[in-house]
Design a protein around this nucleic acid. Structure first.
Lengths: 250, 250
DNA sequence: AGGCGATTTTGATCGAGGTCAATTTACATG
DNA sequence: CATGTAAATTGACCTCGATCAAAATCGCCT
């Protein structure tokens, strides 16, 4: 049942199995800026707090709190959301292992959103202040930091353009396909996918109601594109699902 | 009628009136990194091509083209859009004086979207390659560059969360209010606003049809929130409009 | 195992907005 | 000034998804 890639017999200094290896993390260029001497690496690590943990439902940060860090998910799932004027949750996104959360800390003094763990989460924390202090010393970081943020920006655009103007069923399909791609480092063979979030979260993310989410999943199942058992999904053919969502080959 | 701040008696070397002063530009921290000696400024300007122009309908860049520059609008309006699988325009945004376009160049080799001028446009071009070469020399730029990108990221999030889950009329109201805030450096006294884009562009931006845009504008006019004369709008009370859009005081 | 609360599913109804179509307005051109 | 074309408005109709309500299922706790 262990789906972790190449995890056997890690040296003692390297953190144990589970979670995502640093090399596969979005944060890689930040955590381990290239061209760093061994001593530099050691010092740079001062601005990283590794292997912190959250239990299900625990908050990583909340609106109003000073925004001093960027976080990298190593295992588990985070949800970030804002509150609308009416107090409704507007889910910004779900954040899987290898992904970054809280990049706004680079631009804002205070958080304007919330981040909570949907399940047990392991993460690294990078304190922005410290990192910025190191910036003048590390040329690769100077280039990678803007690039990382810009990549999120581009991804966000694509995402947003899809979310609007897609009929509910396709929107759900796109969501599942996207999630499958991002989790477990690409679509898993069997197509097994365990959702960390409940229907309400999905609805608040996609901008529709839980009923419509449920019905959409049901329809996708009837069409043979999906097997739904609560939060446990199976994706027979990932390509077909992606194509329905318009992420296919044109 | 001259609303440009502190513009009197500029030295001969400074570009003339019209357009946005550098100090009000999003790009300010990039164009004129702080703590630069006069000579450094001169050299840094090598990566900036100033005061370029586009006529109405001309393209700044298009998908597939190498992404080597970031652009700052100085006057006029740019539209950026992607093409959906079906060949439909998906408008990402409208870009007014003082705003940046094409930040994705920091992360991607190629453009995946299009940028065209909706009217005569004056802009500056920053060649990313050159800028990155200067990065190690300019500490302030090292900090400002990620911050600028992150600010856009945060703004995009807020935007997206509003765009979904708002009824058509409010969505249009939000669009107009936003545009009014951004243009002419904040809501102008009389509330006069000249739209650079046509109804189709607005529809493709907001994810609805031109008919619904038209009807929404009409309704907003009936309710006294707007005066519509083609592309010429008048906003009697900007606060009321913003409140309807949910950007009000809670 | 049993039972309770929360989540999810399913059903019935209604309305906002999409679609199709016709009309009017704006604008460029001879 | 007339005219032709594209943009914008207006109207009629219909569909998809929201809403309200009820039933079923899951997960958790003792």
């Amino acid at each position: 049942m262990d789906t972790t890639p190449h995890s056997a017999a890690a040296p003692a200094t390297v953190p144990p199995r589970s979670a995502v290896a640093c090399a596969e993390c979005d944060l890689y260029p930040l955590c381990l800026p290239r061209g760093l001497s061994r001593e530099q690496q050691a010092v740079f690590c001062n601005c990283i707090r590794q292997r912190r943990r959250l239990g299900r439902g625990e908050v990583l940060y909340h609106a109003g709190q000073p925004a001093r860090s960027i976080y990298a998910v190593r295992s588990g799932t985070l949800k970030t959301y804002m509150l609308s004027a009416g107090g409704e949750e507007i889910v910004e996104g779900f954040h899987l292992p290898g992904e970054l959360v809280g990049l706004e800390a680079l631009a804002q003094e205070q958080r304007d959103d919330f981040a909570v763990a949907l399940e047990a989460v392991e993460y690294c924390e990078i304190r922005v202040g410290e990192m910025l202090r190191w910036l003048p010393k590390i040329a690769s970081l100077q280039r990678d930091l803007p690039a990382v943020v810009a990549r999120r920006l581009a991804a966000g655009r694509r995402q947003a353009s899809v979310h609007n103007r897609l009929e509910a069923r396709r929107r759900v399909a796109a969501f599942i396909a996207d999630l499958a791609c991002r989790s477990a480092r690409g679509p898993v063979a069997g197509g097994e996918l365990k959702l960390g979030m409940d229907r309400r979260d999905i609805a608040n993310y996609l901008g529709m109601t839980i009923e419509t989410v449920s019905r959409s999943l049901h329809r996708l199942q009837n069409e043979g594109l999906l097997k739904v058992h609560g939060k446990r999904l199976a994706i027979p053919d990932h390509a077909v699902l992606a194509e329905l969502a318009g992420i296919g080959s044109a």
